[in-house]
């Protein structure tokens, strides 16, 4: 195990414009269709995010927020219930990150998806369905409006109002304290790792 530079940025707050993606149970097959996963690096995945709902069979654009110019610069995706369910592919958050997304606000997130986002330093903030619906409507009407996510204090401020949101405790701490890069954190414990390995019956 070699040592490496473990300088992990802290993510306390995100302040950017939003894009609403409506619908429950949006799975990772929709976020990035499997045929675009035949790649050996994540570079360039952004253009294929939500491909099948953004383009028709002849690659013509369909009506979708991510095709609208006014949302081109958006960095906060506002979603509904159980976002990112289905396959554990990290290509999904990678594609969205490379499209430009830095943070998510939604009713709920599939666990693996949220974990994959955290590993990239992207918050997945949750709120009740009413709060989300209001925010989605507001983003729709204010594509240039800033959304401030305060990860530490679990609030979102937009259009002059501040609403309470939830950030999973472990996620909040990891982001705020800059301890979300688990490779760096765990590498530090090489002595304990060897001790645990040596104690396992099947490795004796």
């Amino acid at each position: 195990m070699s040592d490496f530079d473990a300088d992990i940025p802290e993510v306390r707050a995100v302040s950017e414009t939003g894009v609403p993606i409506r619908g429950n149970d949006i799975d990772t097959d929709q976020i990035i269709p499997a045929r675009f996963m035949k790649v050996v690096t994540f570079d360039g995945l952004g253009q294929f995010a939500f491909f099948d709902v953004r383009y028709d069979d002849d690659d013509n654009q369909k009506a979708h927020p991510m095709n609208e110019e006014r949302f081109n610069e958006a960095n906060v995706m506002v979603v509904n219930d159980n976002f990112g369910c289905g396959s554990s592919r990290e290509h999904a958050p990678q594609a969205l990150m490379r499209w430009g997304i830095d943070a998510f606000i939604g009713e709920s997130f599939a666990e693996i998806f949220a974990g994959n986002c955290l590993a990239l330093g992207m918050p997945t903030v949750t709120a009740d369905s009413e709060t989300i619906a209001d925010l989605q409507d507001w983003v729709e009407a204010n594509p240039d409006g800033d959304i401030d996510i305060d990860v530490e204090n679990e609030t979102v401020t937009y259009g002059g109002q501040t609403v309470d949101v939830d950030v999973d405790d472990a996620q909040r701490q990891a982001l705020v304290e800059g301890i979300w890069d688990t490779t760096a954190l765990m590498s530090a414990n090489s002595g304990e790792i060897s001790a645990t390995a040596a104690s396992l019956p099947y490795l004796k």
């Binding site: 195990m1 554990s88 592919r89 990290e90 290509h91 990678q94 693996i112 974990g115 994959n116 590993a119 990239l120 472990a170 688990t182 490779t183 954190l185 765990m186 590498s187 414990n189 090489s190 790792i193 390995a197």
Partner: peptide
């Protein structure tokens, strides 16, 4: 199942961080 960053974790440390 784990994501790609966790695969990196496991390749690098043979460990995984979980709750």
């Amino acid at each position: 199942g784990i994501g790609t960053s966790q695969i990196r974790d496991v390749l690098a440390t043979q460990c995984i961080a979980m709750e």
